[in-house]
Simulated assay, not measured.
Amino acid sequence: MISEFHIDIGEAELAALRRRLVDVRWPDRLDGARWEFGTDLEFLQELHAYWLEAYDWRREEQRLNSLSHHKFLRNGSSVHFIHQVGKGLNPLPLIMTHGWPGSFVEMQKIIPLLTDPGAHGGDPADAFSLVVPSIPGHGFSDRPTKPGTNVFAVADIWADLMTALGYDRFGAQGGDWGSWISSALGLRHADRLIGLHLNYVSTGFRPDLNPGTPPLAEEEVAYLDRVAKWREAEGAYIAIQGTKPQTLAYGLTDSPIGLAAWLIEKFQGWSDSKQRPDETLTQDELLTNVMIHWLTNTVHSSFRFYSEARACPLHLQPGQRILPPCGIVRLPRELPMPPRRWVERAFNLTHWTTLPRGGHFAAMEAPELLAEDIRAFFRPLRAAAGNRFS
């Protein structure tokens, strides 16, 4: 069952948040330290002042509510999603999935570029009807109460959601967890997927490397070495969120500044920024993403997706491949990305491009570039499908 949804946060919740922000207690830091040990104290104190004095949730709430929000009830649990119908003769249905530490807010700037390309310098024939869900346990989607909501389960929910919307065949797009879920869609629902566009291939993803497959090439060995070094230097969050999410959640559920520090460190380290994350993203964009996590009290349930992935990773079994046509876009400040040969072990690769700027949050950082690459990838697939999607 599908119902309309409207974001409406009560004044009491906003007042309670403000009290916590006013009563913040700051840690010390080493002299001269900036981001090398975690979130920079000076930056966070500046952001805290902006949060209290200038940030306007009601303005952001109104902006978000200009999109078409809904809830999908399935087996007693509801999933929040945005559904923006494209403006064109035959808009292609496309489900776009966010990652962590992001939310559906990641897609806010790219939605109009894809749904109404004619109004943004593009060809109306490239229009998409977008479905932008919140992963269970994230944002306004319900929080799972039992284990088992892994990427494969979410892929099945997405397939059912698209059926409920009347979309028999559709495309999928994502980065971070969105790339895992989109890939799982391609694995479990290949007959329905027109194409698969990814702006990230996870360091935790594994193609079939069992005996009988081609030996690893030098570039693949080098990639695995980069992944190992990256995980040693930057992977502490994966370890704790994948093994002891409950313990971490107490502090970040109680402290909005603690939550902001945990999330924004990743926007600094993973975006195309040099000194500060607001070189690439505005302070409003950073804070709205934090607010979605805070106001929905989903920090712990979002962490649990890591323990679900640890228990049930996206590792292909012997002989398995993801069959729908796949497009990969690489960004210069992305996390370690595999070489083409590694990707071709698992995917039916038909499109491989590199963008001149951007990082892990491509839809926020470089929406115009990403939108054009998505259009280009799906253009020949529309013709092959005969523009019949429902």
Rank of each mutant, 00 (worst) to 15 (best):
G10M: 06
E11R: 15
A15D: 06
L17H: 08
W26G: 02
W26I: 00
R29N: 02
E42M: 13
E42C: 13
L47H: 03
L47P: 06
H48G: 05
W51S: 04
L64E: 01
L67I: 04
H69D: 00
K71Q: 05
L73R: 15
N75L: 00
H83D: 03
Q84A: 13
G86Q: 09
P91Q: 02
L94W: 05
T97D: 05
S103N: 10
F104T: 05
V105W: 12
I110V: 14
A119Y: 06
A127S: 13
L130R: 05
P133D: 01
G137A: 12
G139D: 00
D142S: 10
R143T: 00
T145G: 10
T149Q: 09
V151P: 01
A155L: 07
I157E: 10
M162K: 08
A164K: 14
D176S: 15
G178V: 08
W180Y: 13
I181W: 04
S183M: 10
G186F: 09
A190W: 02
I194V: 12
G195S: 11
L196D: 02
L198E: 00
Y200H: 15
V201S: 06
V201P: 07
F205G: 03
D208A: 09
P214W: 04
V227G: 03
E232F: 15
A236D: 03
Y237C: 04
Y237R: 10
Q241I: 05
K244Q: 08
L252P: 06
D254P: 04
A260R: 10
A260S: 09
W262Y: 13
E279Q: 12
T282R: 14
N289Y: 04
L295T: 02
R304M: 07
F305E: 01
S307K: 15
E308T: 11
A309P: 06
C312I: 04
R321Q: 06
P324V: 05
C326Y: 08
C326G: 09
G327D: 00
L331G: 07
R333F: 07
V343K: 13
E344T: 14
H351W: 10
R357K: 14
G359T: 05
A363I: 02
L370G: 04
R382L: 02
A385G: 07
G386L: 10
N387V: 03
R388Q: 09
R388E: 00
